[in-house]
């Protein structure tokens, strides 16, 4: 796979530059890694709070119930795709799990399989990104970032639906 070259090439370039500029690469690596360790302390509480609300949302069936309201809205779009779209901004693992399920049951190269791939690639997990980044610096008043993040997710997902219907059906 070509994509497997990305990381070695990246790190290779960085190390070659470091050698040319006579940087103490080993010490820098140790120093950077040590800084990374403090992340656990900063992020764990915020992640736990997020995990609780998202897991409850999933096991209570509330999110699926909301997704089922949408099913049938667009003829070609399977109910599982609606669930995936709803999960996408809140839980990367849940939407990934639904995508894999779609690959297995409806086929990876089917209309639904392609739509699922495009949706998964269209945006990142907004709630996770906000929890991680704001959690790491202790910001609690997040202003309108969540709302704008969700608007942007909506735009990405709407574009994903539109493109799949236009080019793959």
């Amino acid at each position: 796979m070509l994509t497997n070259y990305v990381l070695p090439v990246f790190i290779g370039i960085i190390l070659v530059v470091a050698l040319i500029k006579r940087v103490d690469a080993y010490s820098s690596f140790i120093k950077g890694t040590k800084e990374g360790l403090s992340l656990f302390h900063e992020v764990f509480p915020a992640m736990m709070a997020m995990m609780l609300s998202i897991n409850l949302l999933r096991v209570s069936g509330l999110l699926e119930a909301i997704a089922s309201l949408f099913s049938g809205l667009l003829a070609n779009v399977d109910a599982s795709l609606w669930a995936m779209m709803l999960f996408r901004p809140f839980s990367g693992t849940a939407s990934l799990a639904i995508m894999i399920d779609i690959f297995k049951t409806l086929g990876v190269d089917s209309f639904s399989g392609i739509m699922a791939s495009i949706i998964q690639g269209s945006t990142d997990t907004t709630l996770y990104v906000i929890t991680l980044y704001f959690g790491s610096v202790g910001v609690k008043k997040i202003r309108n970032s969540m709302f704008i993040g969700l608007i942007s997710d909506l735009a990405g997902i709407a574009m994903a639906i539109f493109l799949t219907i236009t080019f793959f059906s």
Partner: peptide, 18 residues
């Protein structure tokens, strides 16, 4: 956190190297 630590180290080298 473990993966982030690793890449933190790489990033520090990248920063020092310009």
């Amino acid at each position: 956190v473990a993966v982030t630590c690793f890449f933190s180290g790489i990033v520090e080298i990248a920063k020092e190297g310009g």
